[in-house]
Design a protein around this nucleic acid. Structure first.
Length: 517
RNA sequence: GCCCCUUUAGCUCAGUCGGUAGAGCAGCGGACUUUUAAUCCGUGGGUCCAGGGUUCGAGCCCCUGAGGGGGCACCA
C-alpha cells in the first residue's frame, strides 16, 4: 500500500483538509462529512437491521421473464451494496448487489419526492442500502425495482476499486480480500466452488455413515507426515507444542476406539516454502474406514471428487493444467488409471526397479538420469526420487500411483503379495499430488519397528522424519481392525475444480508478509 | 536461499531519446424522465515503493533495500 497516513481524515469535524492532500484523503473526508450531515439530520448512517423480503436471485427467479415495459404492484424489500449509479435528470438508475445477484434500481423523483431523490443522489458507490419498491421492467426490458423508499444501511467511507476493471494487483487482492470479493466475480466464484466441494464431501460421507470429528491441532509430537512443523508454547503447562502436520494418528486412535468410520476436515500446518501449490496452512480431509483396504479407499476417493465436481461446477469435464501451463480437457468421470510407482519408473528408464534391489544399482540408475541421491537413502527412497524426477510431470489425467516402497511409507501396511511394497496410493492430477491413502498398518510390533527406523533417520540428521509415538503404539496394542485411510488436499481439489492455477485463489487470506501501514 | 519480472493518482493503466506527470474510471460543479461501464460540459487530486549515486537535470540510467508475482530449491 502506498496510501499516505492521513490521521486528520479520520477525525470528525475537522474539515480543514477537505479537497486537499491526496485524492483518497479528500474522498474519505468528503464521505465522513456526509456521515456527519446525516447524523445532524437525525439519520443513523449505520442502522441496526433491515428486513428483506427477497434476495436478488429470488426476485430474478420470480420476475425475470417480465415483458419489457411492465409495471407490477408487487412490493419487495431488498438489500445490497450500491455498485453503479447512473443519474439522468429526474431519474436515477443504480445497480445493487447482494451475494446472489445484481439488480437495477429505478428511482424517479416524481415517486420518491425531492428530498429522498437528493439523498439517493448523494449515495456513494459502495454504500449498503435497503430498498422497498415494486418490481418492474424498463422499456429495454431490464428487471428493476422501482424505489418507493431507500434506507442507508451502512455508509462506505473508502472508495471501491475500479468499477469496470476491479482489482488486478495480486498483492492488494490477497491482502484486501474484502475488496477483491466486492469487485471480482471470479474471486467470489472460486470460493463458492470451494464451499460446494466441502459440502459435497460432507454429504457423500454422511450417506456412507462416516462420523465427522475434531481432533487436536496442538500436538506434543508432530506425526503422520514428513514435514517440518510450526512450534508454539503453552504458558501454564510451560511446554513446547507443535501445530499438527496431519490428522492421521488421532483419527486412527478413534478407529481403535470402535468408531469404525470417521473423518475430519481440518487445517494442517507445514513450515515449508510458499508456492502456487503450497500455503503454510491448508485444509486436509482425512477419513478412516474400518474393515476396508486401500482399493476400497481408492474407489471412495474417485467417488468423492467426481461427485464434488458435479455439485460444485455441474460437470465432470475440467481443464487440467500441466507443469507448463497447457490446458488438457479431461472427463473426471472416466475411470482413473492405476499404476505402480515401480512400473512408472521402469516405463521412464527402461529398467525394472524394485526396492529389493541393492542400493548401489539404484544409485547408478539415478546418476544416469541426473537424479542426485542422499547417501542415507535406501533403495525405496531412491525409487521415489526417480518417480518424482521422471514420471510425475506426465501425470495429467487423474492417476493412482500405487505400491510405494515400505521405506517411505511408515504407516502403511505391506503389500499382501510383496513385502517390499505397501498397499498405498497417491492420486496425481495435473502433475500435483491431491490425495494419499493406504491399507493402514495395524500390527503394533511392526509399527514400532517402522517408528524406530523413522527415529533413527531423524537422529541421523533427517529433520523431517518421524519419531516413536508411544501413545499411538499403545492404542494399536488394543487392536485396530483392518482399516483403509485417505487424506485429500482440499485446497488442491478446489484449484482443480475452480480452474485456477494458484492455491492463493482458493484460500481466503493466504499467508503473506505483514503489510507496513 | 537463488534467478527473472514487477511497483506511477483511490482503482485500471500510459509515460518516447534523461528535459521537470498523463488518460479512463471514481470524486466535485453543471445538463438530462428509461439508463446499462449512460452520455455531454467544466474541474480538483501525485512521497512516480524506499534510500543512495551519476547528471546542469532522473518516473526513466546505476547501486542497495522492501513488497508482490513467477521459476528453481524445499515439500508423504
Amino acid at each position: 500500500m502506498n496510501e499516505p497516513n492521513t490521521p486528520e481524515s479520520g477525525s470528525e469535524g475537522d474539515d480543514s483538509s477537505e479537497l486537499t492532500g491526496s485524492g483518497l484523503a479528500a474522498e474519505k473526508t468528503r464521505r465522513l462529512t456526509r456521515v456527519d450531515q446525516l447524523r445532524d439530520a437525525g439519520v443513523n448512517p449505520y442502522p441496526y437491521r433491515f428486513d428483506r423480503s427477497h434476495t436478488l436471485a429470488e426476485v430474478r427467479a420470480q420476475w425475470g421473464s417480465l415483458e419489457p415495459g411492465t409495471e407490477t404492484e408487487t412490493a419487495v424489500a431488498i438489500a445490497g451494496r450500491l455498485m453503479l449509479k447512473r443519474e439522468q435528470g429526474k431519474l436515477i438508475f443504480a445497480t445493487v448487489r447482494d451475494r446472489s445477484d445484481d439488480i437495477q434500481l429505478f428511482v424517479s423523483k416524481a415517486v420518491v419526492g425531492d428530498d429522498a431523490f437528493a439523498d439517493i443522489g448523494a449515495l456513494d458507490l459502495g454504500d449498503w442500502v435497503g430498498v422497498e419498491g415494486t418490481v418492474m421492467t424498463t422499456r429495454k426490458g431490464e428487471l428493476s425495482v422501482k424505489v418507493t423508499r431507500l434506507e442507508l444501511l451502512a455508509k462506505a467511507v473508502r472508495p471501491m476499486p475500479d468499477k469496470w476493471h476491479g482489482l488486478s494487483d495480486t498483492d492488494t487482492r490477497f491482502r484486501q480480500r474484502y475488496a477483491d470479493l466486492i469487485v471480482n466475480d471470479e474471486a467470489r466464484r472460486a470460493f463458492e466452488v470451494r464451499h460446494a466441494i466441502i459440502s459435497s464431501f460432507r454429504r457423500t460421507l454422511a450417506d456412507k455413515h462416516f462420523v465427522e470429528v475434531e481432533t487436536p491441532v496442538l500436538h506434543v509430537e508432530a506425526g503422520g507426515a514428513h514435514a517440518r512443523p510450526f512450534l508454539t508454547h503453552h504458558n501454564t503447562l510451560d511446554m513446547q507444542l507443535y501445530l499438527r502436520i496431519a490428522l492421521e494418528l488421532h483419527l486412527k486412535r478413534l478407529i481403535v476406539g470402535g468408531m469404525e468410520r470417521v473423518f475430519e476436515i481440518g487445517r494442517v500446518f507445514r513450515n515449508e516454502g510458499i508456492s502456487t501449490r503450497h500455503n503454510p496452512e491448508f485444509t486436509m480431509m482425512e477419513l478412516y474406514q474400518a474393515f476396508g483396504d486401500y482399493s476400497e479407499v481408492m474407489a471412495l476417493t474417485e467417488e468423492l471428487i467426481v461427485q464434488a465436481a458435479r455439485d460444485s461446477i455441474g460437470t465432470t469435464v475440467v481443464d487440467i493444467y500441466d507443469h507448463e501451463g497447457t490446458a488438457h480437457r479431461v472427463d473426471l468421470a472416466e475411470s482413473w488409471r492405476k499404476v505402480r510407482m515401480i512400473d512408472l519408473v521402469a516405463e521412464k528408464t527402461g529398467v525394472e526397479v524394485h526396492p529389493s534391489q541393492p542400493v548401489e544399482s539404484l544409485r547408478e540408475l539415478a546418476a544416469t538420469h541426473g537424479v542426485s541421491v542422499n547417501p542415507r537413502w535406501g533403495s525405496g527412497k531412491i525409487i521415489e526420487e526417480l518417480f518424482e524426477a521422471l514420471a510425475e510431470t506426465s501425470l495429467i489425467a487423474p492417476t493412482f500411483v500405487t505400491g510405494h516402497p515400505v521405506e517411505i511409507s511408515p504407516l502403511a501396511r505391506a503389500d499382501r503379495n510383496d513385502p517390499f511394497l505397501t498397499e498405498r496410493f497417491e492420486l496425481f492430477v495435473g502433475t500435483r499430488e491431491l490425495a494419499n491413502g493406504y491399507s493402514e498398518l495395524n500390527d503394533p510390533v511392526e509399527q514400532r519397528l517402522r517408528f524406530e527406523e523413522e527415529q533413527a533417520a531423524k537422529d541421523a540428521g533427517d529433520a523431517e522424519r518421524g519419531t516413536v509415538d508411544e501413545d499411538y503404539l499403545r492404542a494399536l496394542e488394543y487392536g485396530m481392525p483392518p482399516t483403509g485411510g485417505l487424506g485429500i488436499g482440499m485446497d488442491r481439489v478446489a484449484m482443480l475444480l475452480a480452474g485456477v492455477t494458484s492455491i492463493k485463489e482458493v484460500i481466503l487470506f493466504p499467508t503473506l508478509r505483514p503489510e507496513v501501514f
